[in-house]
Design a protein around this nucleic acid. Structure first.
Lengths: 185, 185
DNA sequence: CCCAGCATACCAACCGGTCTGTTTTTCACT
DNA sequence: AGTGAAAAACAGACCGGTTGGTATGCTGGG
């Protein structure tokens, strides 16, 4: 793999785990086994440019993943259960769920950097789009599909925060059980 | 007001706005118009001890606030609508909602510091308790009250994240409209 | 030859934290 | 009430380490 992709991959994980300020440049460089020269060659604008590249990479990774799950299930409800089930599995095996959220970056950077905020917004929108299209397939109206997809995104993101504080997958399990109540046209 | 309370008040806002690492000690001190000596006199263990004090202070502030709203309304649904309405009003007037969330601290510190994680967990639990008790008053079973209160907490916290990225109060408004679907025993 | 692709040395600024010194308050004792 | 010692409440200089960023040097392939 080329140096640039390697950097993005490793930096993405570190940003998710430790946040933007929490992940130091030197730390990232050491993890990639490269030096400043390489970083500032590929990302002349430094750390923030790297972060945005990471968010874009994350965008593709997450959406293709969710999309494949949604293609494998006929109804939105089943697909949602499968998606959450996967999150729970990751959380229980890897101990953390950092790979599928970026709430740290959102809450840290949304008010500081417009480009970063936009990149995060694009990611959320793309996830909601997948939900929304499936809901429309299920017979939801366009408006209610938009509302419900937003609701799903919010509750899952919030549940992940609760999982973090509780060091447990229970919040996600609870959300999963209550989802049918929301998936009503 | 005494110096210690002043420090906690100002530091709380800065931590919420910029996160733990994002808010520098010198920055906090300058905002309070005090010096290192004062800080390390009241908080010998430094920044992290200050953060925990902030989280505890925030705990009281938020819960008394929510509790008063919940006392003023008869049903959980009405109380929730009022609570969210207040969040929306704050967001639209102050431009930010930082004062009522601490997701940045959770996602940043949960995996780094146990005391901080516990303080955040206590805060979420206390909020859920208020919801849960009201739900039981409304006739919910103990189990379903626990589930629904968690779901409400998660979706509101997630919606706030979405509001941050969108720079809009729409996600909270959407959540508010869909809440009745979840508040079914 | 040249230029993309890196490595290395270096930088000022800032980080959280410690230490010592000074002011202010408290309070027991006469 | 007056006094003086002790303790609390600060102020400010200083520290080593780290931060993100820059400038220059080297190197191999087209």
């Amino acid at each position: 793999m080329d140096t640039k992709s390697l950097m993005v991959d490793i930096a993405t994980k570190l940003f998710q785990q430790k946040g933007y300020k929490g992940a130091g440049l030197n730390e990232i460089l050491k993890a990639c086994n490269i030096t400043k020269g390489a970083l500032y060659h590929h990302f002349p604008n430094g750390k923030e440019e790297l972060l945005i590249a990471c968010l874009q990479s994350l965008n593709e990774a997450i959406t293709t993943d969710i999309e494949s799950i949604f293609r494998q299930h006929s109804s939105t409800l089943e697909a949602m259960h499968a998606t959450i089930e996967k999150l729970i599995m990751i959380l229980e095996t890897e101990g953390t769920i950092a790979g599928y959220t970026f709430s740290s970056i959102v809450s840290e950077m949304a008010s500081l950097s417009e480009p970063v905020r936009n990149a995060c917004g694009a990611l959320y929108e793309k996830i909601q789009d997948i939900y929304r299209n499936k809901l429309i397939e299920d017979g939801f109206s366009i408006e209610s599909a938009a509302s419900v997809s937003l609701f799903m995104t919010a509750s899952i993101e919030g549940a992940m925060l609760l999982c973090l504080t509780q060091k447990s997958a229970d919040p996600l399990k609870t959300i999963s059980k209550l989802l049918p109540n929301v998936l009503m046209p």
